[in-house]
Design a protein around this nucleic acid. Structure first.
Lengths: 154, 154
DNA sequence: TGGGGCACTATGGGCGTCAATGGGACTAGA
DNA sequence: TCTAGTCCCATTGACGCCCATAGTGCCCCA
């Protein structure tokens, strides 16, 4: 399966390293990459991480904006200044830099959460809090009949 | 028959594994899959489980949402981060992870319940309680004449 | 119609592999 | 020379893969 799915929590060691879950790693390595592109999420205390093509994908969207509009400037700044690369070491670990810690509050453990085309890095507590909120919002929508379960068929 | 019907309770062994009922397994294996997609039910202490196409079906639903709205983000998080794959071993068993135990309260035994296009995993007691409640609700509705049972045929 | 045997499922357990983690040593830059 | 980053290796615990066994239902045949 070539999608990022599920979530795992790993420990940061004394040297500030943390193992990227093997399942996620294999997806990236299958694509032939040894680097990760990380971006601070706009509205969540989490990091969006993926292979280098993640940046490409965002860049493409940026290209569709009017280059003279303020939005394009903002997006470009956001992508290139507020994002960065993370190097995978030989054992599939990355170093948790201040760039990561500041935005996410991560200190001792990291929760890696799948997001289909990429994955996210969270402070375990923040992740749990967000999960609870998301479930509440969706349950509410469901109660209001705004969410219909897709019809089966097989 | 390619529908999930009935319910069975199986034991979790010392290694935390439990056999998926052969009846359910055969439906999934007939489709050529060795993986299961599991999702924590929004309103029940149960897991919704099915073949990978279950995720595809939900993904399709997600595609109908406005990608910039909060609901789309929530749904993606719910589907991709709060859901995950369960691997079937050579004997048709899955390991019951904390991911499952936390949400369902499952510890020693698991009740597998058919749900037509997919099936559910329950703590036996919770399942029994839910079953009783559902029957009561339906009986009440019927008493109020809100439920008409279609005439049987065949 | 009853008995024997076959097929299959659920369950238990051994064992090898791999992932996660910890730590030492080397290198380069300050 | 000291520090930070990298590379490499060791440990351990979890998990996948394999085989064994027991219980059960079904079928066939006498």
């Amino acid at each position: 399966m070539n999608r990022f799915l599920g979530h795992v929590t790993n420990r940061i060691d004394a040297k500030g390293r943390v193992s990227v879950p093997a399942q996620f790693r294999s997806i990236i390595q299958t694509a032939g990459h040894t680097e990760l592109y990380a971006l601070r999420s706009l509205h969540l205390p989490a990091l969006d991480v993926g292979g280098p093509e993640l940046l490409t994908r965002f860049d493409k969207r940026l290209g569709q904006e009017d280059p003279f509009a303020e939005t394009a400037d903002d997006m470009s700044f956001y992508l290139h200044a507020d994002g960065g690369f993370l190097k995978l070491d030989g054992d599939g670990r990355i170093t948790v830099s201040d760039f990561i810690r500041e935005h996410t509050g991560i200190s001792g453990d990291v929760t890696f959460a799948g997001a289909n085309t990429h994955f996210q890095m969270w402070h375990p507590d923040q992740f749990e809090a967000h999960r609870t909120k998301v479930r509440e919002r969706l349950a509410e929508k469901r109660r209001q009949g705004e969410l219909s379960v897709p019809a089966g068929g097989s």
